[in-house]
Simulated scan of single mutants.
Amino acid sequence: MNPIKGIRVLVVDDEPNILQFLELGLLNEGFEVKTAPDGMAALTMIPQFRPHVAILDVMMPGIDGFEVCRMLKKSENVAIIMLTAKDEVDDRVKGLMLGADDYMVKPFSFEELLARIHARVRNQFPMLAGEASFGPFRIEDRRKEIQLEGRVLELSPTEYELLKFLVVNHGIVMSKALILEKVWGYDFGGDENIVEVYIRSLREKLGDREHRLIRTLRGAGYRVDLP
């Protein structure tokens, strides 16, 4: 399985052996890992660590995994995998009703857990996995390649970053100032009209003569509308 860089995983379990086993295994796979022995400790570290994936044991003293799951789903965009020593339907249903994304029963295979983590990341954080589809567009970030309806677009590095920024944020109006900051960098000292030049070039390469894909909103900026 290809490693996914930059993914933060929080493991919460009151069994030290499981914490150590999962921490070492996940670190070896390239993940950033934090561990917590109980629900309270997990909740205190979440605001700074901001995990992409949380692996929660159901049965813990104090705040159990169900309550941590409920509180996490209220405030964070996080994929939650619940662990339990009991293979009971009621526990599965309760966890899923509270927002859990997946469920595993102890003892479990590390390889299977790893596969489920990768699946959740691809589903909830596709750009971190290196590729994602948005309407007719497919972005493969590792290859620095964008396809439109299966056709690979011939883009310069700046055109690639600009189109990716607009497509990922489709439906949202992006001002020239924001585009300059995110694509060219906050310290860019040139004329903001350079954005117009690159938008014109992108429209030509997209065959967007009627500006249906990249729309101009006068005085506001640009917006990508997906069919």
Rank of each mutant, 00 (worst) to 15 (best):
residue 38 D to E: 09
residue 82 M to D: 07
residue 139 I to F: 08
residue 40 M to R: 15
residue 227 P to A: 14
residue 161 E to I: 07
residue 189 G to K: 15
residue 46 I to G: 04
residue 120 R to L: 12
residue 119 A to G: 08
residue 174 M to L: 12
residue 167 V to L: 07
residue 71 M to I: 11
residue 2 N to H: 14
residue 162 L to Y: 09
residue 64 D to H: 07
residue 162 L to S: 02
residue 77 N to R: 10
residue 150 G to Y: 08
residue 70 R to E: 08
residue 124 Q to I: 09
residue 71 M to S: 03
residue 53 V to F: 07
residue 26 L to R: 03
residue 90 D to Q: 10
residue 194 I to N: 08
residue 32 E to P: 00
residue 158 T to M: 12
residue 182 K to P: 00
residue 39 G to P: 07
residue 74 K to M: 13
residue 56 L to P: 00
residue 31 F to Y: 12
residue 183 V to R: 08
residue 144 K to M: 09
residue 202 L to T: 06
residue 76 E to C: 13
residue 48 Q to C: 04
residue 61 P to Y: 03
residue 44 T to Y: 05
residue 63 I to C: 04
residue 151 R to I: 13
residue 224 V to T: 06
residue 221 G to E: 01
residue 44 T to L: 07
residue 5 K to W: 01
residue 81 I to E: 03
residue 172 I to S: 03
residue 103 Y to R: 01
residue 122 R to G: 06
residue 41 A to S: 14
residue 71 M to V: 06
residue 105 V to Y: 10
residue 16 P to C: 10
residue 57 D to S: 01
residue 31 F to Q: 00
residue 19 L to H: 05
residue 114 L to R: 02
residue 108 F to M: 14
residue 6 G to R: 04
residue 141 D to I: 10
residue 62 G to W: 12
residue 28 N to S: 12
residue 11 V to W: 02
residue 108 F to G: 13
residue 70 R to A: 12
residue 128 L to G: 01
residue 41 A to F: 04
residue 13 D to V: 11
residue 85 A to M: 13
residue 38 D to L: 09
residue 55 I to D: 00
residue 37 P to Q: 11
residue 176 K to D: 15
residue 189 G to D: 14
residue 191 D to H: 03
residue 110 F to D: 05
residue 29 E to L: 09
residue 155 L to W: 07
residue 19 L to T: 09
residue 195 V to R: 03
residue 36 A to S: 12
residue 149 E to Y: 10
residue 45 M to F: 00
residue 28 N to L: 08
residue 66 F to G: 10
residue 182 K to Y: 01
residue 182 K to C: 00
residue 28 N to V: 05
residue 66 F to I: 13
residue 171 G to I: 05
residue 90 D to A: 15
residue 48 Q to W: 02
residue 56 L to M: 05
residue 149 E to K: 09
residue 82 M to T: 01
residue 45 M to P: 02
residue 116 R to M: 11
residue 167 V to K: 04
residue 224 V to W: 04
residue 159 E to Y: 06
residue 98 L to Q: 09
residue 35 T to S: 05
residue 178 L to S: 02
residue 115 A to N: 09
residue 216 T to C: 02
residue 46 I to L: 06
residue 216 T to N: 08
residue 147 Q to D: 06
residue 107 P to L: 07
residue 129 A to Y: 10
residue 179 I to D: 00
residue 132 A to I: 05
residue 118 H to E: 10
residue 151 R to V: 11
residue 18 I to T: 13
residue 96 L to K: 13
